[in-house]
């Protein structure tokens, strides 16, 4: 549900001329794909800890860095980065 909501908001923002990157967890990757989210970082975390576990500042920072890099680097819609596989 939340991944669907984020996908819908990302689409509205992009349509309004605002670039987006969406971060989500692997269990709901399919929803980002279905909604053709423009840029997405997929984290290998359990739901509800999208950015990282409680107080895991190193992992959290890594995810934020990955999101910003994707925001800069993506040149076409549907650019996804899976942090579990590095692909």
């Amino acid at each position: 549900m939340c991944h669907g909501s984020v996908g819908l908001v990302a689409r509205a923002l992009e349509a309004a001329g605002i670039a987006t990157v969406s971060v989500g967890v692997r269990a709901f990757l399919h929803r980002f794909v279905e909604l053709q989210v423009p840029r997405a970082v997929i984290t290998p975390h359990p739901m509800g800890r999208t950015i990282g576990s409680v107080d895991d500042r190193v992992t959290q920072r890594r995810v934020v860095d990955a999101g910003l890099s994707l925001l800069e680097g993506a040149s076409a819609p549907g650019t996804f980065v899976d942090l579990a596989t590095g692909q």
Binding site: V6, A12, A15, I18, V21, G24, G48, I51
Partner: peptide, 29 residues
């Protein structure tokens, strides 16, 4: 989801564009 798609998300986008937001970092849960 329908209301978000048709009404709410476009209104938020307009609000942020008016505030000259260039990019948004979204987090799903």
């Amino acid at each position: 989801q329908r209301r978000l798609e048709k009404q709410t998300a476009p209104a938020w986008a307009e609000h942020m564009a008016a505030r000259e937001v260039d990019a948004v970092f979204l987090v799903a849960t």
